[in-house]
């Protein structure tokens, strides 16, 4: 369906590609990168950030799904 979330079968939020849950998860994921970067003195790549989040049990399942999809879509370097 056209108005489905890019990550699940739920309907999209208005003016967004994602459902409510994934929209919030993505916003959190993007917003927290700045905090992680500061915590590690500016030395943390996005890949490292994602892989650390994937290894933590505190990370939400919706966030992990976003990261997994992101990693699958990335062309291996």
């Amino acid at each position: 369906m056209v108005d489905q979330c890019s990550f699940c079968e739920k309907p999209r939020e208005p003016h967004s590609e994602y459902c409510g849950l994934h929209k919030v998860a993505l916003a959190n994921l993007e917003a927290q990168y700045a905090n992680w970067l500061m915590a590690f003195g500016g030395e943390l790549s996005k890949d490292e950030y994602f892989s650390k989040l994937m290894s933590l049990r505190e990370t939400g399942d919706a966030v992990k799904r976003l990261i997994t999809r992101n990693q699958q879509n990335t062309v291996p370097r």
Binding site: L21, A25, Q32, W36, A39, F40, T59, G60, V63
Partner: peptide
């Protein structure tokens, strides 16, 4: 549950 699923931890 939504808050938990969308949670991104920060280190300290």
């Amino acid at each position: 549950e939504k808050e938990i699923q969308a949670f991104v931890p920060t280190p300290f």
